[in-house]
């Protein structure tokens, strides 16, 4: 189970994810966002076997090539990896007449973010179709609809990268708290801007977490205050 969020900001892009890895009955924590090159990160939701295959091949892509040049190669990698898994899967012959059901055997959803110096967010579906996400946030994985609902009220607001990071943290934290999607802490956040790509360390995440906490507490107390004034 995974929730990945990409939020474009005025001065960069934020990619964030929850940190729970579920394998069968076992739950651990781990990184879900990976570095593609000095300007680009990527993450995926879906079946681990598929993500691993894609990851192996992505490691062989030419280094520091802009995402626009890599788009179709990555799409091919996804398509090839899905095809291989379907060829290995004994269930495949039973779904030959139903492509949608066939693709559900090995689910996967891939997202790439680059800042060079313009923001680029590339989404590749499990069937290998690449699409650019323009001027909006993107969510992938379990709880994506919940994330979109939470993000809706911030649509069109001009955020800087730090505020976008707080928003990403808040959305993922709330999705984890709702708990219906098998998501879990810790929240990982990467920032991409003109200075390059960086993963926020524990102290930086703690600072963002406290900001999200402050927002929530202030909201509650403000609400309570308005109620007591009315009373």
């Amino acid at each position: 189970m995974t929730l990945i969020l990409v939020i474009p900001a005025r001065d960069g892009i934020v990619m964030a994810s929850d940190g729970q890895i579920t394998s069968g009955m076992v739950r651990t924590t781990g990184e879900k966002i990976q570095l593609l090159n000095e300007r680009c990160v990527w993450a995926a939701s879906g079946e681990l076997a598929l993500i691993q295959r894609v990851e192996e091949r992505i490691g062989m892509l030419p280094p520091n090539e802009p995402l626009v040049n890599l788009r179709d190669q990555i799409a091919q990698i996804v398509k090839q990896s899905v095809t291989e898994l379907l060829n290995l899967d004994f269930r495949t012959p039973f779904f030959q007449k139903s492509p949608n059901d066939l693709l559900r055997l090995h689910p996967g959803d891939f997202v790439f973010a680059e800042f060079s110096p313009n923001p680029g967010i590339l989404h590749i579906t499990v069937n290998g179709t690449p699409e650019w996400i323009k001027d909006r946030s993107f969510a992938s994985g379990n709880g994506d609809l919940f994330a979109y609902a939470l993000l809706q009220k911030y649509k069109g607001i001009d955020l800087d990268i730090e505020r976008a990071s707080v928003l990403a943290y808040k959305v993922i934290e709330e999705a984890i708290e709702v708990g219906a999607y098998g998501l879990g802490p810790p929240v990982h956040i990467w920032q991409l801007n003109e200075n390059g790509v960086r993963q926020l360390n524990e102290s930086q995440i703690a600072r963002i977490s406290d900001t999200a906490n402050m927002l929530r507490q202030a909201e509650i107390e403000l609400f309570m205050k308005s109620m007591s004034k009315e009373g």
Binding site: E162, R163, V166, E202, S203, Q204, A206, R207, D210, T211
Partner: peptide, 16 residues
């Protein structure tokens, strides 16, 4: 001056 007012990143690492 941070998003929730005065903040020192070092406080987090010392707490850790």
């Amino acid at each position: 001056p941070y998003l929730y007012g005065p903040c020192s990143l070092e406080v987090y690492s010392v707490l850790e």
